[in-house]
Nucleic acid binder design. Structure first.
Lengths: 215, 215
DNA sequence: TGAATTATCACGGTTTTCAGTGAAAACAAA
DNA sequence: TTTGTTTTCACTGAAAACCGTGATAATTCA
């Protein structure tokens, strides 16, 4: 019989880690060589055990220290032969896009059935990529809707002023805080309003909060 | 040997469900009689199989149709003999508090180790409740910090006006929309500002967004 | 180096918000 | 039935925001 495939699993939720390990240990063609809770642990292992052939790294996206996206790019950069499969809770189009651009070999949701998980793993180990139909669909939708959002980019100053506005400071206060003229801040407010397509302070504030620009 | 304990597991992420099943099927004292993806499935099963003795329901909080909190209260209401263990991703003090008040028998995080999971299950099956140290700590902190938040309650109209303000409507527009005088809306705005302890529209908007009053 | 973007400032006029103060009617709860 | 809350409306003066329409210097980047 062939030697089993060597797999690393990374997820910060130990229960999920244990569960996945338990599921995969039933598969005789798979050998789990490491389970890790952070991306850094995985990278460290790969760097130390360079002589060991690792076939696949299964990773979550949300992890402390080094998340799945960073881990993925690092692996593809340093160990291009190692395949990666992302198993994530979220179905965030942007993150999926970044991951595909970083040459992830597969992406499935934690909603996926066990059979789909095994299918994905086998496909990848066979040299094919695997993205579940749902993920493909989300990617497609993102492609189309992306064009409708022309990506508003704000300069440093604009961002700074916007934050202060959303924090309830008045024009005069912001001017004092930044050692600028009150007129300057007024210009910024005006620009921000037209740039972001909103009508007033409320709109600016909502934009700032929803984009997570505060705290 | 004793008859094994009958357990139901509910979680909308099938991978987690499979993982947990896989872990627990190693335990001989445990028999998994049902795995479900929604709370309603669990309730339906309990209602049909009334003669069957179910010892424990392990459930996530976030689930479609009927979440873990509703499921828990329903179980405690209809089937008080059935124990419940909540296994959740989130460590939200409020939800934990609601669950303890609804007589949940245990609460552990998905961060918990396998050993802790088994410990929790065994404790509960032995008639004790189990809350992990971390959860206890969060609960304690919530108790103390709760007093610092004096629970601001807004009336229907106040909420309505606040929403419209946060949606960038001017006083006049809101007045027209609600068939009220402009002065009335001004009063509401003023009251809201002092009630919520903010300074201006930005503060009101932030409050509305952060409380999830919009969508 | 030249073009584009960013950062800065200015002014007059209009609208809106903010702060203070007050009050009447409707309604629910105790 | 009294008390409290909610909903409704009104006026004033000051402050701030909003609108239009500029301009100049600094920086960045192609």
């Amino acid at each position: 019989m062939n030697t089993p495939f060597s797999i690393i699993i990374a997820d910060d939720h130990s229960m999920f880690l244990d569960g996945l390990t338990s599921i995969l240990s039933e598969e005789k063609s798979i050998k789990i060589v490491l389970t890790a809770k952070t991306g850094t642990q995985v990278l460290k292992y790969l760097r130390i055990n360079t002589e060991e052939k690792i076939d696949l790294v299964i990773t979550d996206i949300n992890m402390p220290e080094m998340d799945g996206i960073e881990l993925n790019t690092a692996i593809k950069d340093e160990f291009p032969k190692v395949k990666t499969l992302v198993v994530s809770m979220l179905e965030d189009a942007k993150k999926i896009k970044i991951l595909t651009e970083a040459n992830t070999n597969g992406y499935i949701s934690k909603n996926a059935e066990k059979t789909e998980l095994l299918k994905a793993i086998k496909s990848i180990l066979n040299g094919e990529n695997y993205f579940s139909p749902r993920i493909k669909q989300i990617l497609m939708e993102a492609m189309f809707s992306a064009k409708s959002e022309p990506e508003i980019s704000l300069s440093k100053r604009e961002t700074e002023v916007l934050k202060l506005i959303a924090q309830e400071f008045t024009t005069q206060e912001i001017a004092d805080k930044l050692f600028l003229s009150k007129h300057t801040i007024e210009s910024y407010r005006k620009n921000l309003i037209s740039k972001l397509g909103v009508r007033n302070l409320a709109g600016l504030t909502r934009y700032a909060v929803e984009k997570g620009m505060l705290e």
